[in-house]
């Protein structure tokens, strides 16, 4: 099988090879465009997130996908599932809003809790932090798709899988001819 690929590669002339490289570049750049376009469209810095922990079980399990929006004019209300970032933690957290207090000047502070946790999130926040604010928020969950995120979890936990998949895809695109 691999010999076949090599033969194909040898039979290509320079122009054909360049064409394949360019079409590979097209695929990568259009994927990037879709992602950036989604960011503009949803107002969230990360419009699709993978659930990484079991703290929202049985609603969300590890590997489920969530679609987020983060529109400025939409108020935060209790019961909503929000994704937020904590200073000093790389991974955003997906939890439900438990309490909100909105001041007369419009500033809002809120407290979250995971459905599967027995206590609220004050222990997860940065030391001394009691409340979340709107600037901490990455988005709120709007759509749900099960299992699909398992692929990215697999790739992140076993980097060899990631490189193997990337290598196969790259080779296929470069060698494949219409």
């Amino acid at each position: 099988m691999f010999d076949g690929f090599l033969d194909d590669l040898k039979r290509m002339n320079k122009r054909q090879f360049l064409y394949q490289v360019l079409s590979f570049g097209m695929i990568v750049s259009s994927a990037l465009m879709i992602w950036k376009g989604l960011m503009v469209f949803t107002g969230s810095e990360s419009p699709i997130v993978v659930v990484l922990s079991g703290s929202m079980e049985p609603a969300f399990h590890r590997g489920d996908l969530l679609f987020l929006t983060n529109y400025e004019e939409e108020p935060v209300r209790v019961g909503e599932i929000v994704v937020f970032k904590i200073e000093g933690r790389d991974i955003p957290i997906v939890h439900r809003v438990l309490k909100i207090h909105e001041k007369n000047n419009g500033t809002i502070k809120f407290l979250t809790k995971g459905d599967n946790n027995s206590v609220d999130d004050r222990g997860l926040y940065a030391p001394g932090q009691q409340w979340l604010e709107k600037t901490d928020m990455v988005g709120r969950a709007r759509g749900f798709l099960p299992y699909v995120g398992m692929v990215t979890i697999l790739m992140n936990e076993y980097p060899k899988v990631k490189f193997a998949v990337l290598a196969c895809l790259g080779l296929y695109v470069l060698v494949h001819r219409e």
Partner: peptide
Amino acid sequence: PTNELNQIILWDKIIL
């Protein structure tokens, strides 16, 4: 007087 809107979840239940 200080907060124009307060919302607190007092009770919840997960129903499968």
